[in-house]
Simulated assay, not measured.
Amino acid sequence: MTVELPLLLDLLGVFFFAVSGSLLAARKGFDLVGSVLLGSMAGLGGGVVRDVILNQGPPAAFSHPIYLAPPLVASLLVYFTVKNVQRSGRLLFMFDAGGLALFCVTGTLKALETGMNPVAGILLGVTTAVGGGILRDITANEVPSIFDPKDLYAIPAFIGAGLATGLWHLGWLNLTTGTAAAVVVFTLRMLSLHYGWHAPLAARSWTPRRARRG
């Protein structure tokens, strides 16, 4: 990958997650400022956590002002285009899945390029992918998707980060293969929505229906 390509994919991931944050803000009845802030948390939160852990200087979101553009564009896009806020749940899911797919690849790549071992690379890739969503959901008083028993969230991120790590060590990680890994993650997320897939519950005796009632 060239120097410009990871930045482009990173910004695209920021935009996807920022749209999910702005859509959630709209569903919660936040104002436009709240939409920008929630979109920024969703789009930038995971990358900031990753960069702080890597200790490579100021996080990219603060040292490169261009990272602030996607949340602004996302909030304006939602403001002018979304007509039915209450029916935007599937759209929110799709943009969240897109951000997760891109960030688990770009986050892993950045970790590996700074000298992290494969296990650390995968963990930081997953952290990048899920961190912004956790901040978004907690701020909006929602159960974070990663903890939702009816959702498949972290497992696709681990698969994508694992694929990116394997491709990077084989010297095969490029635009085509990186995009393919992201497509795998996105597809798993969308299939989980369609078929109702979820990870095994913490206690085998606990059923999803009982969990919802509790």
Rank of each mutant, 00 (worst) to 15 (best):
M1S: 15
M1N: 11
V3K: 03
E4M: 12
L5R: 02
P6I: 06
L7R: 10
L7W: 11
L11G: 04
F16V: 00
F16C: 06
G21A: 11
A25Q: 04
K28R: 15
L32G: 00
G34Q: 06
L37P: 02
L38F: 03
S40N: 05
A42D: 12
G43E: 12
G45T: 02
V52G: 08
I53W: 10
L54V: 06
G57Y: 13
G57E: 11
G57W: 13
P58E: 11
P58S: 08
A60N: 14
S63N: 13
S63I: 08
L68S: 13
A69P: 01
A69G: 03
P70Y: 10
P71R: 03
L72H: 08
V73G: 00
L77A: 06
V78W: 12
F80Y: 11
F80K: 02
T81G: 07
T81S: 13
V82P: 15
V82W: 11
K83D: 11
N84K: 12
V85D: 14
R87D: 15
S88Y: 06
S88P: 12
S88T: 11
L91A: 07
L92E: 15
F95I: 01
A97S: 02
L100E: 03
A111T: 00
T114W: 00
M116D: 10
M116Y: 09
N117R: 03
P118A: 05
V119H: 01
A120K: 10
L124T: 01
T127D: 06
T127L: 12
T127F: 08
T127Y: 07
A129M: 01
G131Y: 05
G132A: 01
G133I: 02
I134E: 09
I138M: 11
I138H: 07
I138E: 07
T139M: 07
T139H: 04
T139S: 09
S145T: 07
K150V: 01
L152V: 08
L152N: 08
A154N: 02
I155N: 07
I155Y: 15
A157H: 00
F158R: 00
A161K: 05
G162P: 03
L163R: 06
A164I: 03
T165R: 01
T165Q: 05
W168I: 01
W168R: 07
W168K: 04
W168E: 10
W168S: 07
L170H: 08
W172H: 10
W172L: 14
N174C: 06
N174H: 09
L175E: 14
T176H: 14
A180Q: 12
A180M: 14
V183L: 15
F186I: 02
F186T: 05
F186D: 09
L188I: 14
L193R: 00
L193T: 00
L193F: 02
Y195L: 03
W197I: 00
P200Q: 10
A202R: 13
A203K: 11
S205D: 14
W206E: 14
P208A: 07
R210D: 13
R210H: 07
